[in-house]
Simulated assay, not measured.
Amino acid sequence: MRAKKSSDLISPAGLIKLMTHALMGAALGLTFSVTLILSNPAVASLLDHSGSHAAIVVALTLVTTFAIGATLTGAVFILVEDKQS
């Protein structure tokens, strides 16, 4: 019978992997939001008429959403990789 080993997710290396996934998601969200604002005139016009901080709020919302999604996906990847080895 195999001994139970602790999950790689709880170790310092696992936390660094999760942080890496979160940062990748944040970078992707920022790229997506800037591209959306600059390439779509309807969105740019809507944000222009919405107030002074509307573009920042939209960008931060997308960055946060992408970062959370990438972190959760990274956790699943780490757990699946841990089960296979």
Rank of each mutant, 00 (worst) to 15 (best):
M1I: 11
M1A: 14
R2I: 08
A3K: 09
A3T: 13
K4P: 13
K4R: 12
S6N: 14
S7A: 04
S7F: 12
D8F: 11
L9Y: 01
L9H: 02
L9K: 02
I10M: 07
P12R: 01
L15D: 08
I16G: 08
L18T: 00
L18H: 00
L18N: 02
L18S: 06
M19F: 08
T20L: 14
T20G: 10
H21K: 01
H21L: 06
H21G: 10
A22L: 05
L23T: 15
M24G: 09
M24K: 15
M24E: 06
G25C: 05
G25A: 15
A26R: 04
A26Y: 00
A27H: 01
L30Y: 15
T31P: 00
F32M: 09
F32D: 02
S33N: 00
S33W: 06
T35S: 12
T35A: 11
T35P: 03
I37S: 04
I37N: 02
L38Y: 14
N40E: 15
N40Q: 13
N40H: 09
P41D: 03
P41T: 03
V43H: 01
A44L: 06
A44D: 04
S45N: 05
S45Q: 10
L46Y: 05
L46I: 05
H49D: 11
S50C: 02
H53Y: 15
H53L: 14
H53M: 10
H53W: 08
A54W: 13
A54Y: 14
I56W: 14
I56H: 10
V57L: 03
A59T: 09
A59L: 07
L60V: 07
T61C: 15
T61F: 07
T61A: 15
T61P: 12
V63E: 03
T64Y: 13
T64R: 05
T65S: 09
T65R: 12
F66R: 10
F66V: 04
A67F: 00
A67H: 03
I68N: 06
I68D: 07
I68A: 09
I68R: 01
G69K: 01
A70F: 10
A70E: 11
T71P: 10
L72W: 04
L72K: 06
T73M: 11
G74R: 02
G74C: 03
G74E: 01
G74M: 01
A75R: 01
A75W: 01
F77E: 09
L79F: 08
L79H: 09
E81Y: 12
E81M: 13
D82M: 13
Q84E: 12
Q84A: 07
S85R: 09
S85D: 10
